[in-house]
Simulated scan of single mutants.
Amino acid sequence: MAAACARTFCNVSRLVYKTLPCRPDNGVVFSTRIYLQTQGNTYGTMGKRFRPKHLQFRPNLRRGGQALGCAFLIGGGFGLYHTINFTFQRHLAKESKVPDLNLTLYQYKTCPFCSKVRVFLDYHGLPYEIVEVNPVMRQEINWSTYRKVPILMVNGTTQLNDSSVIISTLMTYLISKEKTIPQIVACYPEMKAKSDSGKEVTEYGNKYWVMVDDAESGMLYPAKDSRKEEIKWRKWADDWLVHLISPNVYRTPMESLASFDYIVSEGKFGTFEGFFAKYFGAAAMWIISKRLKNRHNLQDDVRQDLYKAVNKWVAAIGKKQFMGGDNPNLADLAVFGVLRVMEGLQAFNDMMENTKVKKWYRSMEDAVHQN
């Protein structure tokens, strides 16, 4: 389609540019009838020809034909660029090797990290199966030494851990024409370390990098510093934004109870587990949220930290529709995935009413759900 658009713009430009300019002494307004013939499919027509259009030239525009031709060339160039860029980013999932992917996501529905992965998969049109994990027993992932979610199994053989590693791996796979999933996973080495409390933690190297060559990078990140900005905000979503969710959804006893009512209704709980989780879990998380507030140095009114973070994100986007420009990039998808888990709760409603995020958020909903 991009090629057809390019041919059409060139034909219009050439025909208009060759049109004789109006002379000052010609008092008659004339029109030039233009027919465009294209090869193969013709877009937006009833047959092989576009419907005739009349381009009128006023007698006081001496070189109007040449100017209009140049305008078509410039406009065609911009249009072709955005068409190619849009096609490249939004239809990667239709590449020939993508149907070979058999994806199974092990998740908690209300987990922000799991939500990030689902948003990425939905946006790129990748089909996947979901296995909802019981958060108490976690029997569904007994086969794994890695005991957190999300876990993504690819073709039943390759296990991907950590939401950001999953997203970077799949994005690399969609773009690269040569690398396999196991080859790409090797680019994100697992590293063991100890936290300040002495607990062993697992981290992954390079997890915010999409492993593409220079040519592919130029297509994926056409704007200056766009790759750097994407990495910066993906990391911000993991290191800061996600830690604002629990203190806000469990801010008061009533909010905590409402949150656990949603968690139980959407999660995989037995009857007794659901009752226990709803009431005892809500009380426990309300207490824990106070500790989280102190751990992350949040204000007494944790809503203000949420508002500040969200407005900071919107300010960074500026006048663009998305952080990625005309289309969401991985940072857009990550932030949207984190915020989306609050939908239906008081914290989400307050955020939409008291910040400037609504326009971007609704645009993200449309972008993700179009596939």
Rank of each mutant, 00 (worst) to 15 (best):
A2F: 06
S13I: 04
V16R: 01
K18T: 13
P21Y: 10
P21V: 09
R23G: 09
D25P: 00
I34C: 06
I34H: 10
Q37N: 14
Q37K: 14
N41C: 11
R49Y: 15
K53T: 09
Q56L: 08
Q89W: 04
H91M: 01
H91G: 04
E95D: 10
E95V: 01
V119W: 01
D122S: 14
D122H: 12
I130E: 15
P135Y: 09
E140W: 05
I141S: 10
S144L: 07
R147S: 09
V149A: 10
L152W: 09
N155D: 12
T169I: 04
T172S: 11
K179R: 13
M191I: 11
A193F: 11
S195I: 00
V201A: 09
E203K: 10
K228G: 06
W233N: 00
K235H: 12
A237G: 13
L244W: 02
Y250Q: 06
S259P: 00
V264E: 04
K268E: 14
F269W: 12
F276C: 08
Y279P: 02
G281I: 00
A283Y: 06
W286F: 12
S289F: 07
R291W: 12
L298D: 04
L298N: 03
V310T: 15
W313K: 00
I317M: 09
G324H: 04
D326K: 11
L333N: 01
G337M: 10
L339Y: 03
M342F: 07
M351R: 02
V368Q: 03
